[in-house]
Simulated scan of single mutants.
Amino acid sequence: MKCIVGLGNPGKKYKDTRHNVGFMVIEELLNRHQWDLNKKKFNGKYAMEHLQGEKVLLLQPHTYMNLSGQSIRPLMDYYNMDVDDVLVMYDDLDLPPGKIRLRQKGGHGGHNGIRSSIDHLGTKEFKRLRIGIGRPTTSIPVVDYVLGSFTKEQQEDVEHSIKVAADACEYWLQNPFLEVMNEYNS
C-alpha cells in the first residue's frame, strides 16, 4: 500500500490558492479515475483505491497547512504503513510555476506543512514532490502571496505541473522512486 498526500488548507476560502497546489494534484488524480475522497478520519479526507495493482491512499489533511503531520501520522499508524510508502506533495516558492521536483528526503526549507510532517513522522527521510509556485515579483508579503491565487500568466504553467505531478504519482505506483526521480526531475 502507498499513500499520496497533498498538502493544503481546507475550505472554499483557500481552494484556488498557491498554497493548495498539493490538494490540486490529489483532485487531478481523483478526476482521472472517477474517485472521491469518501472517508473522513484522521483530521482529513481520504480515499482508498486500487490502481495498477497497487492499493493507494490519497489524503488531503484538513488540519490547515501548519499541522499537516497531525493527519498523516495517524493514517499511517492505522494502516500500519512504513514512511517509505508515503509521498508528500506541496508548494515550493523556490521553483517557478510549471516545474516540479522530487526528493527522497530533506529539511523543511521554511515550509510549515513539511516542518509539521517531519515532526510527526519523526524523520526527514520521506518522499516529497515539490510543485513550483515561484516567488512574488512585488513587495507582497510571502504569506499573502502563498494564500493568493495564481495569476493568469501562471495558470497554464501550473495546470501543466499539476498534470505532470499526477503522472509522477501514478508512475511511482509501479516503479522505484529513484526511477521516478530520474524520469520527472529532468
Rank of each mutant, 00 (worst) to 15 (best):
M1F: 06
C3Q: 15
V5A: 06
L7T: 06
G8D: 14
P10T: 06
G11P: 01
K13Q: 15
Y14G: 00
K15H: 14
D16G: 11
T17K: 00
R18V: 13
F23Q: 03
I26F: 06
E28W: 03
L30Y: 00
N31D: 14
N31E: 15
W35L: 01
W35D: 03
D36P: 00
L37R: 13
K39V: 14
K40N: 02
K40F: 05
K41V: 02
G44E: 05
K45Y: 15
K45A: 14
K45T: 14
K45E: 15
H50E: 14
Q52A: 13
G53R: 04
V56I: 15
L57M: 08
L58G: 13
Q60W: 08
Y64D: 04
Q70A: 08
S71T: 04
R73K: 15
R73H: 08
L75Q: 12
N80H: 13
N80F: 12
D82W: 04
V86M: 12
L87M: 09
V88C: 07
Y90N: 07
Y90H: 11
L95E: 11
P97D: 13
K99P: 04
G107C: 09
G107R: 11
H111C: 14
H111Q: 15
R115A: 13
T123Y: 06
T123A: 08
T123K: 05
R128Y: 06
I131Y: 06
I133A: 10
I133T: 09
T137W: 00
P141Q: 12
V142M: 15
V143T: 15
V146D: 09
L147P: 07
S149Q: 09
T151N: 09
Q154C: 07
D157R: 10
D157T: 01
E159Y: 10
S161C: 09
A166Y: 03
D167H: 10
C169M: 09
C169A: 13
E170S: 04
E170V: 11
E170P: 09
W172I: 02
L178F: 08
N185R: 09
N185V: 12
